[in-house]
Design a protein around this nucleic acid. Structure first.
Lengths: 140, 140
DNA sequence: TTCCCCTATGAACCCCTGTTCAGATGGTGG
DNA sequence: CCACCATCTGAACAGGGGTTCATAGGGGAA
């Protein structure tokens, strides 16, 4: 999808070759013919396995309600682990485990002060991302 | 996080009350005291369980490499199931199952033509979302 | 230095999700 | 109207992720 992002203006939502096999009225996928022209055109733009894997791992980090609650708390202000646990009503061990996941995708940053570790959102992309998703969900 | 999105300008990345318990130099979370002021301040802004659940389901739909490949193909042009299967090298049944997940989160729309069903991206939010994530990943 | 507390890690268990195979549905072309 | 073919659905199996309990690490305070 890197390619997609690069030239996102080239996206068309219109029907593709609405006449798949020119000269034939049958829009069928029959046999192994499929719509070879479309497939060949699209295939090189498909996300590579590595890219897809990496992006999937990123979204996986966001695909848990508890982690989203943690992020929504951190969006307000920096907090240490025990405060986070209290704020989202989770065990401290569970919080630590989830924070590890968030760290691995660089969704949060952390900072040691005294005997505590304070966590916060990593950067602005995260917030922009939430805004997009929130809009999408509100449109439901 | 709805609240967070609503007033995202109110986010501070600065340390919270860097002196958690006024009059005490110990920034400790000891006992059940934690940093009550911080917790009470943040807690009402934490995503509700229902909101978090809904958003988690949305991200879950994006947390699979195969589904991301499908989306990257659909970002190029509308395609029918069998073409998608060929483009991402998956079985048609598996593609159909995954498209069901994408439909359930309204990530794709579909349209019947002849004996085929053409799928495409649902709306522009999806693309904007990809752009944010792609930037985030590239910054790694 | 020594103890203590916050945080992190490891392992076991369970649930949830993706895949595959088989069969059902339903619009289409003859 | 009938048979066909693309798509969808359902069930069974396998794998990955989350929670919990128990334990280890690592600063700070005295």
């Amino acid at each position: 999808m890197g390619a997609v992002v690069a030239n996102s203006h080239s996206i068309n939502t219109q029907p593709p070759n609405t006449q798949p096999t020119p000269g034939t009225d049958a829009p069928a996928c029959d046999e192994s013919l499929v719509h070879l022209d479309n497939v060949r055109q699209v295939q090189p733009e498909v996300l590579s396995t590595e890219q897809a894997q990496r992006m999937a791992e990123f979204f996986s980090a966001l695909s848990d309600p508890h982690r989203l609650k943690l992020l929504s708390a951190l969006a307000q202000q920096e907090l240490c682990v025990c405060d986070l646990a209290a704020a989202v009503k989770m065990g401290e061990s569970a919080v630590s485990h989830q924070l590890r996941v968030l760290r691995s995708q660089r969704l949060v940053k952390y900072r040691r002060q005294g005997r505590n570790v304070y966590y916060g959102l990593a950067d602005g992309h995260i917030m922009a991302l939430y805004r997009e998703v929130a809009e999408h969900l509100e449109e439901g």
